[in-house]
Computed example of a mutant assay.
Amino acid sequence: MTTSRHGTRPTMKDVAASAGVGLKTVSRVVNGESGVTQAMAERVRTAIAELGFRRNDSARLLRTGHTASIALLLEDIGDPFSSALSRAVEGVAADEGCLLFTGSSAEDPAREQELALAFCARRVDGLLIVPAGADHGYLLPEIASGTPVVFLDRPAPGIEADAILSENVGGAREGVAHLIRHGHRRIGFVGDLPHIYTSAERLRGYREAMAAADLPVDERWIATGSTDQARVADAVSRLTGGPEPVTALFTANNRVTLAALHHLARLGARPALVGFDDLELADLLDPGLTVVAQDPAALGRTAAKVLFDRLSGDTAPAHRIEIPTRLIIRGSGESAPPPAAG
């Protein structure tokens, strides 16, 4: 790195002297502000590159109270849905000249709280959270002190805050109705843990679709629990076996769908199937997998924009925005049920 004439880290004064402009002009270029001609901004950027200048964010914090950083807490950054959501948030943050920190809660409320408070202690300007727990009272002091919080994918019970969600009920209703239109009357539901908001909402959509078609729901057709492959395999075996098996399955998230497909592949045959969440290579299965696709990129972008609006002074009441889902028909939900015995 090039040093200033005094042998220290280059400062904005050094950049201004090298570029032959005023200190305010350098500040505007560094902070992405308007009011600088393109030619002058290019001179400043050239000086920055030649000197190896880096903005002092500690000084920025003291001067403005902002760190130009936000934090995103997800269930699992390795999950494809979470990864797409994170990339979308990072894109908006980059456009805002802001750094994104990311952490995974592993669906553990204590871990979520630990990470959220750790990020707040490091003075991030705002938080985006996919909530793991039911009690977010620990965030009230942070919100009161001016740190905006936006919840994604699930609302936070008991706290008034922005929530950006997928259309869980409507999407599940559409997916199950698709199976009903193809003649299925005994439809099994395999979902995540019942206390999770998205799992409960998708189960509600399943029940609404069955009720709209005047079809009874046998509670034995509903299997909720962990997304562990063994648990899902047991559930699928129970639902599709026995003297009165279901003829179709609605799987309520991508991990459940994958576990169900692994098990059904070993059986050599599978019932009609519609999954909630799209999967990579789903169109290469035989038949292709019909899904209710979420839009994690839109979810992330919308949540990030709401957060930056709050940081810019938006004081409107809390938003609750639902991002539409889309039924993608590929074949797995279109097979007719087998003829009734007798």
Rank of each mutant, 00 (worst) to 15 (best):
G288C: 06
K305Q: 15
R326S: 12
P324M: 05
R301F: 05
T290F: 04
R301S: 15
A318L: 07
R310T: 04
A297M: 11
A318P: 11
D295E: 14
G313F: 06
I321W: 07
G333N: 03
D309W: 03
P296H: 11
R301H: 14
D309E: 15
R326M: 03
Q294G: 12
L311E: 01
E334N: 12
P287R: 11
S332W: 01
G333F: 02
K305S: 13
G288Y: 10
T290K: 05
I329V: 15
V292S: 08
K305F: 07
V292D: 07
K305R: 15
G331L: 03
D314R: 08
T302C: 14
V292P: 11
T302R: 12
T315L: 12
R326A: 13
L299P: 07
P317L: 11
L289Q: 09
R320T: 13
T302Y: 05
G300S: 07
S312E: 13
I328D: 07
Q294R: 13
D283Q: 13
A298Y: 06
L299Q: 04
L285F: 15
L311T: 04
R301N: 10
G331V: 00
L307R: 02
R326Y: 02
L299N: 08
L289N: 06
G333T: 03
L327G: 00
I321C: 01
L299A: 08
A316N: 03
L285G: 06
R320W: 02
A318M: 09
D286S: 14
P317A: 14
Q294I: 09
D286F: 13
D286N: 14
A316L: 05
T325P: 03
A297P: 05
F308E: 11
I329R: 15
E334G: 04
R330S: 01
I329S: 06
G313A: 01
P324I: 02
K305Y: 06
K305P: 01
P296Y: 02
D314Y: 01
D309T: 02
G300L: 05
A297E: 15
I329D: 10
L284Q: 12
V306R: 15
L281P: 00
S332T: 03
A318H: 08
L311P: 04
D286C: 13
G331H: 04
T302H: 04
L299E: 02
L284H: 12
G331D: 05
L289Y: 09
A293K: 12
A303G: 13
A282G: 13
A303Q: 06
V291D: 06
L311W: 00
T290L: 02
E334K: 05
A282D: 10
A293L: 11
L327P: 06
F308N: 08
R330A: 01
D286M: 13
A303E: 01
R301I: 11
D295I: 10
D283L: 04
R310M: 03
G300C: 05
I321G: 00
F308K: 09
L327D: 00
A282T: 06
G288N: 07
K305I: 11
R310N: 04
R326E: 12
G333Y: 07
P324Y: 02
L285V: 08
R320M: 06
Q294H: 13
L285D: 02
A282Y: 00
H319S: 15
T302P: 05
I323A: 01
G288P: 07
S312G: 15
R301P: 09
V291C: 15
V292L: 06
